[in-house]
Design a protein around this nucleic acid. Structure first.
Length: 290
DNA sequence: ATCCCGCACC
DNA sequence: GGTGCTGGAT
């Protein structure tokens, strides 16, 4: 069982979304920035932030020179701000140690802050046309359905090899990977797949009568969690160009003071917030001279 | 109220 | 191998 590259790529040529980071002339660094932003966040929310971002900071050195506080502010409400901190760290390393050029090979990319198995291969593939398997949750779902006939399955170490075996030889591998991701994102979706629009003539999941998922996935809560409190604290700091008092932070979460203290402490530990010598609080790197 | 879904660290 | 991390859309 395999996936016909012609069917998949043929569909992609006409069905792909016009996303700004796919346009010609976008640099490897700018693709890397899009991958960081897309790690946890839907395309629609990333697009405006990415456009403003690359116009303001088109290169790693420009990003590094901006300082982490401005980077955290520009990240805005994309969520999971540790990604913004790691992106800034990544820019510092690339500007300082790699001559302002994004490394091309997967192993080197994997050593950079915030770059894991997915992002390393996405950058190597989409920025440098490397024939490496790019496995995100969309690809995993498509492969699980088409090849194994299951609605969904947890991630496995073997997924990388499975997808590598599907890649066509030659220069179409990156397009094939982009098309697999696109199919999972717009047709072979988790909840309401549009099987009537699927270009693939062979699919074990369809052949098996679309069996439902057997594994029940746990729900990610947000309301009332430390994540929500962290978000509110950071929102205060993003909105202020000078350091704020503890009291200004305290007012965002009055219902559970222990939780609020824990959230603030975790932001300090994560290096997203820092305390000034006079006891005020600011975005990390706020005082940096650039 | 539910969905989204990669990285780092345990 | 499991858990924590954001916030908007639906």
């Amino acid at each position: 069982m395999s996936i016909d590259p012609g069917e998949l790529v043929g569909w992609y040529e006409s069905a792909q979304r016009d996303l700004p980071w796919r346009r010609p002339g976008v640099s490897a660094w700018q693709i890397l920035v899009s991958e960081f932003m897309l790690q946890q966040t839907p395309v629609a929310r990333v697009e405006p932030i990415w456009l403003a971002w690359i116009e303001r900071w088109p290169t790693p050195s420009a990003t590094a020179a901006a300082g982490s506080a401005e980077v955290l502010r520009a990240w805005g409400k994309l969520g999971y701000p540790r990604r913004a901190k790691r992106l800034h760290e990544c820019a510092v390393v690339i500007a300082g140690e790699y001559g302002d050029e994004v490394p091309t090979d997967v192993d080197t990319l994997l050593t950079l802050p915030g770059i894991g198995a997915y992002t390393a291969r996405a950058v190597a593939c989409f920025a440098y046309s490397a024939s490496v398997p790019v496995v995100d949750t969309n690809v995993r779902r498509v492969v699980t359905r088409v090849l194994r006939g299951q609605a969904d399955a947890p991630a496995r170490a073997r997924d990388l090899d499975d997808v590598a075996a599907l890649l066509p030889a030659g220069p179409t591998a990156p397009t094939f990977s982009a098309a697999l991701m696109e199919l999972g994102a717009v047709v072979c979706t988790a909840r309401a797949p549009q099987c009537g629009r699927c270009p693939l003539s062979r699919c074990r999941w369809r052949a098996a009568g679309y069996p439902a998922a057997t594994v029940t996935k746990r729900v990610q809560r947000y309301a009332g969690t430390d994540r929500q409190v962290r978000g509110k604290l950071l929102d205060v700091l993003r909105g202020s160009s000078n350091p704020v008092t503890r009291a200004q932070l305290d007012v965002v979460w009055l219902s559970d003071t222990a939780q609020r203290d824990r959230a603030l402490d975790s932001l300090l530990v994560d290096g997203l917030v820092e305390q000034t010598t006079d006891g005020l609080f600011a975005l990390a790197g706020e005082g940096e001279i650039t």
